[in-house]
Simulated scan of single mutants.
Amino acid sequence: MEDNIGRFCRLPYPDHPNGCPNFGKNELCPPLFKPIPHTKFNDYSKLMLLWAEFDFKSYKIEMKQQWIENNKSKGIEKEPTDKQISCCLYWQNSVKRIIIKSLNTMIKDKNISEPSLILACGSGFKHKKGANNCASMEAGGINVILTFKKLHIDIEVKPVNKVILCILLGFRNNYNNILRNLDKIMYSKKVD
């Protein structure tokens, strides 16, 4: 937990010299969404981190080859830039769907109650149709990179080889049942 995790949202990145354009404009992002007080996490009997790993390096190689093949027939010889093939608009939602599917499988097939808290990878995450958007873990005051490092999970700050997207789930009760039913769920880890 960090009180000023929103400072990361203001760090410049390509085409965004002032940081994330959602900062101060999206109700699910800092500073409009206030960090969750540390003591509030005591309301949950257990927290669980659910994540999906995406082979970003292979994806970019495949996308570059597809782009070249598709455009060769049109007489276009120019190769796509790394920036073009890395754009999250083309891959991020498919990775989020993997997480959503895993979460909904836990709830439906494993007889696990709905989590009382969901903080997601980035804002705008919906775990089911009709659900409200979830705030990001960062908006909740959680340093995602540091959390993964403390759990000894290899995560790249500026992904080149793999991307990890995750959600944090908070359960208020029924945790023993959750542990019994998680044996087949991949990419989950209990966070104490």
Results as ranks from 00 to 15, higher is better:
residue 123 S to Q: 09
residue 87 C to D: 13
residue 95 V to R: 03
residue 69 E to Q: 09
residue 151 L to V: 14
residue 95 V to L: 12
residue 116 S to T: 08
residue 114 E to L: 07
residue 102 S to W: 02
residue 66 Q to V: 08
residue 133 N to M: 15
residue 93 N to C: 06
residue 134 C to L: 09
residue 112 I to F: 04
residue 89 L to C: 02
residue 118 I to Y: 03
residue 62 E to K: 14
residue 133 N to A: 14
residue 91 W to R: 00
residue 100 I to R: 15
residue 116 S to G: 08
residue 65 Q to L: 12
residue 133 N to C: 13
residue 69 E to K: 09
residue 81 T to G: 08
residue 151 L to G: 09
residue 88 C to V: 03
residue 83 K to I: 11
residue 101 K to M: 15
residue 88 C to I: 03
residue 123 S to V: 04
residue 101 K to E: 15
residue 86 S to G: 04
residue 83 K to R: 15
residue 120 A to L: 00
residue 137 M to W: 01
residue 66 Q to S: 08
residue 100 I to A: 15
residue 75 G to L: 06
residue 149 K to C: 04
residue 106 M to H: 13
residue 132 N to H: 10
residue 109 D to G: 04
residue 87 C to S: 11
residue 145 I to Q: 07
residue 100 I to Q: 15
residue 122 G to N: 12
residue 129 K to H: 12
residue 124 G to D: 08
residue 131 A to S: 10
residue 69 E to A: 07
residue 103 L to M: 11
residue 130 G to R: 07
residue 85 I to L: 08
residue 108 K to Q: 04
residue 118 I to R: 05
residue 123 S to A: 07
residue 81 T to C: 06
residue 65 Q to P: 00
residue 68 I to F: 09
residue 126 K to L: 09
residue 139 A to H: 13
residue 91 W to T: 00
residue 147 T to I: 09
residue 111 N to C: 03
residue 96 K to I: 03
residue 132 N to V: 05
residue 114 E to R: 08
residue 94 S to G: 05
residue 75 G to V: 06
residue 109 D to F: 05
residue 65 Q to F: 04
residue 75 G to M: 11
residue 113 S to Y: 00
residue 87 C to H: 10
residue 125 F to D: 01
residue 85 I to W: 04
residue 94 S to C: 03
residue 110 K to E: 05
residue 111 N to Q: 04
residue 137 M to A: 02
residue 113 S to R: 01
residue 66 Q to M: 10
residue 111 N to M: 04
residue 98 I to G: 12
residue 126 K to P: 03
residue 112 I to C: 09
residue 100 I to W: 10
residue 150 K to I: 13
residue 116 S to P: 02
residue 93 N to D: 14
residue 99 I to D: 13
residue 94 S to V: 03
